[in-house]
Design a binder for these strands. Structure first.
Length: 241
DNA sequence: AACTGGTACAACCGCAGGAGC
DNA sequence: CGCTCCTGCGGTTGTACCAGT
């Protein structure tokens, strides 16, 4: 791989961005759009590498960045996605609107790693956050008729509420109930997977090649019948056209 | 008030892969 | 086919901030 010429490196600023640099970058993107990051130093005179500009824009300056703490719902989703995808931060971030891969990665490394470690060794935390067990209220057979793998992938994001409406604890957050918004988002994810040619998708190939996809092993709650409804409806619609 | 250790997060680095020539 | 450029990803580092002593 080619490296940036040393004479350019010598001129590049490093470290924290100044307000002026931010403004130059924002102005550039407003005028030229995203992409072609390597041209920014030449065109705008900004003494930052293209990579640095891209990172600054994506992780900080982009207008749709969601500021503030990660909500418990988002935290749950991160944990579930991480169980399935591993350290694919960009994929995980793709399911959390307004959050960046860098932010999620940092959050995982500084917060969630410790939380999960405590859950694995509850004595360390004297049962403050006892690890919940998967109830298995919704069995894998429930999804067997609707392209089980796909339904399962979507289901990873949805805590099982139980067929009778009572909350069963999920693998991370105990008995807390997800917000309607995030639940809908997770169901959208499932539907999206069905809408797309999932068997050809990168995610599907990844799951197959890496043999990571095992819902039982992951102890992830599967979709209840209620939650499967929007998916089965979509599928019936597709197959019946 | 000064020091210290821990935490959170911004930023950098190396690498891989795709596109265009 | 190989080279160059560009983009994106994940791991790691640097540092500001904060709480505790």
């Amino acid at each position: 791989m080619r490296k940036t010429p040393s004479f350019l490196n010598a001129e590049m600023n490093k470290g924290a961005w100044t307000a002026l640099e931010d403004k130059i970058l924002v102005d550039y993107v407003a005028a030229h759009g995203e992409g072609k990051w390597g041209r920014i130093p030449r065109v705008s005179g900004l003494k930052r590498s293209g990579k640095s500009c891209r990172l600054r824009w994506l992780n900080y300056l982009r207008p749709d960045i969601k500021r503030g703490n990660i909500s418990p719902d988002e935290e749950d989703l991160i944990v579930r996605l991480h169980k399935l995808l591993g350290n694919r931060w960009s994929l995980i971030a793709g399911r959390l609107p307004g959050r960046t891969d860098n932010e999620i990665k940092n959050y995982w490394n500084t917060v969630l790693k410790k939380k999960l470690k405590v859950q694995k060794n509850p004595r360390d935390d004297h049962c403050k956050n006892p690890p919940a067990k998967t109830t298995g209220a919704a069995r894998s057979s429930d999804v067997a008729t609707v392209k089980p793998a796909m339904a399962g992938v979507g289901a990873l994001a949805i805590p099982d509420l139980g067929l009778n409406g009572e909350n069963s604890s999920d693998s991370f957050s105990g008995e807390r109930i997800w917000s309607e918004e995030l639940r809908n988002q997770a169901i959208d994810f499932s539907t999206e997977l069905l809408d797309t040619d999932f068997n050809q998708s990168d995610l599907w190939k990844l799951l197959q090649t890496e043999n990571e996809f095992d819902m039982e092993q992951l102890q992830l709650p599967l979709l209840s019948s209620e939650e499967l409804l929007p998916i089965t409806t979509t599928l019936s619609h597709e197959e019946g056209h």
